[in-house]
Amino acid sequence: MRAETLARLNAERAARRAAILVTDIADGGQRLVTEDAVAADPLAEILSRHLASGRSGLIEVDGHKKFLTVQVPPVRLVVIGAVHISQAMAPMAAALDLALTVIDPRTAFATPERFPGVALVPEWPDAALGGAVPALDRYCALAALTHDPKIDDPALRSALRAGCFYVGALGSRKTHAARLARLAEAGFSDSETARIRAPIGLAIGAVSPAEIALSVLGEIVAALRRAPCPEAA
């Protein structure tokens, strides 16, 4: 491996961008395919599949064995609202290797007692994102769960702008229609706001907070694994 290739691979990882290193096992020849170059690559289809699964592996192309070192940034889950559903979500997110951050400016909700061991930020989303919480990016999922437009809306706007691979918002269809109208007023197009999953979560008939948490996490996993690569902003 050329030192320069290794340095580029490490740089892509540090910048939280996906990349695949393609190594010819017979002669050690290598090339690095960054996420923005996957679609135009001769191996686009297979590279996309590996990017979606996040798994490294051996492939065979025209009788040549090639190893794909797949590097995908760790997925972050940002939840707006230190509510009952988020409490139920915390251990499930940990089991799924999703790095969870809960943001809620209401200090009565955002208490360490209610969220032991969870990254909890008792600030308004606008202040928290890009401040105490790293800015959102394509490898982030955002779930807005407060029911309060003052808190949810700024976070949803940030998530849409950042191109988060998953953006979900709690609330009835009626609540969501009002939300869409507010976002349209703020300058978001229909195709942008169509990316918001609302009512949030897979339709599994969830009733309890834990069941709703499960339906949201199921929807997040589906968004992560089904798409070849998160949609660009």
């Binding site: 491996m1 030192a3 290794l6 798994r55 490294s56 592996g57 051996l58 190893f67 070192t69």
Partner: peptide
């Protein structure tokens, strides 16, 4: 690996490329 090489050390990288059965470390 990058920083060792930068510091002038000779470096090799080993990568698990295939596993069968109950292999202890995953591919990659």
């Amino acid at each position: 690996a990058e920083s060792w090489r930068r510091n002038g050390r000779a470096v090799a990288l080993a990568t698990v490329i295939e596993t069968w059965g109950s292999a202890p470390r995953p591919v990659g």
